[in-house]
Write a protein that binds this DNA or RNA. Structure first.
Lengths: 195, 195
DNA sequence: GGAAGCATGTAAAGTGTTACATGATTTT
DNA sequence: AAAATCATGTAACACTTTACATGCTTCC
């Protein structure tokens, strides 16, 4: 992520806008110097922010238009020859909205919503052998995810850390360590099935 | 070229229907003896299955109608005097679809999608004091959730365990232990901020 | 008589996913 | 010349939440 771009001017006195995660993520990326929808998507992929809030082009482009309508960003044409391109910049109102979002004190409760855990909740309908098989599947899934975080997410987070961006490493480590913990939990429960 | 039309119908009474989590959960509850939409909702609340897959009446009633259309459940009138009520029963096709769902080998990757973690990913925009405050919030949230699992979910899961329903305790313990782990992770990261 | 619980739904809005569609530029 | 990448979007569908709407029965 490069230097922060200057905040564009917008009429003061805009009504305070309460951001949702998707909008906040876009503002954070624009603030970080990524100006086009395409560049933002690639940055989200490259920094593995998608591990915590996945998104698609079909969400990004309409959301950018909404942010512009709300006066949180301004758009200018940034086409290269015949290839059209938009460049977005964050406004004062946008920066204020992002700061408000980031400083929101109450965090909504984290959901554990997961189809695999739901299956486990109904595992009484399975034989002991099948229950062990399900637990093995869940453990292997957690191990795969842990490897993905260790091999792909953490190296990027470490590189960003060296440039002064410390936060991505905090969440990257959380992801890796969570999946390692989950794998050990499933292994333990699998062992208890023997008794 | 248009879509290919099916050249043969599945044997009647055994349509291959792939369930989604909401439908599977309803079938599991009907299978467990809860016959009305209202009773199913109360059972999901009472067993704290909502901790892993929350739902609302506005999802349950249309989904029950869809399951009936697909032949996975049958509805009969079960009104008490003037208070109308429907009673649903699972069909053979419904039981087969549920078994297929439960035995699906590949588990979709678990998402860590959480607004609190997304905030943490952008915490470089905060002062060190504010960053510590955010981590404290996240830790306290995890502690609240852990208490909720210990005080509300686990006692019910233990009671169900005594009646022979073992699976709810596996997921209930996972919830409690996950939130305890998360609290300790946030506490550790908070400590590292000092260095 | 009133409150609480039983029971079933619809409407509207918002959010998210998948598939499709188009065309330019750069790289091999 | 073909493939990959850059870049922007629409359409349709699926899912979820919030609010609303109705009326019955049981308990205090």
């Amino acid at each position: 992520m490069g230097r922060l771009l200057p905040v564009a001017l917008a009429p003061s006195g805009w009504p305070a806008v309460t951001l949702k995660p998707s909008g906040a993520m876009l503002l954070a990326m624009i603030r970080g110097g990524f100006t086009s929808g395409y560049a933002i998507k690639k940055a989200i992929e490259g920094m593995h922010t998608e591990a915590f809030w996945a998104t698609t082009f079909a969400q990004i482009y309409p959301e950018l238009a909404r942010l512009e309508t709300d006066g949180l960003v301004v758009r200018r044409d940034d086409s290269l020859g015949a290839r059209r391109r938009s460049a977005y910049a964050i406004t004062e109102a946008g920066a204020a909205a992002f700061d408000d979002w980031l400083r929101t004190a109450e965090q909504p409760p984290m959901e554990l919503r997961d189809e695999g855990l739901l299956r486990l909740a109904f595992a009484d309908a399975l034989s002991v052998a099948e229950r062990r098989e399900l637990l093995r599947e869940l453990r292997e899934r957690a191990e795969r995810e842990e490897r993905r975080f260790r091999d792909e997410v953490l190296p990027v987070a470490d590189a960003l850390y060296e440039t002064g961006l410390h936060a991505p490493r905090m969440v990257g480590r959380m992801g890796a360590e969570y999946h390692a913990w989950a794998a050990s939990y499933f292994a333990r429960i699998e062992g208890e099935l023997d008794r």
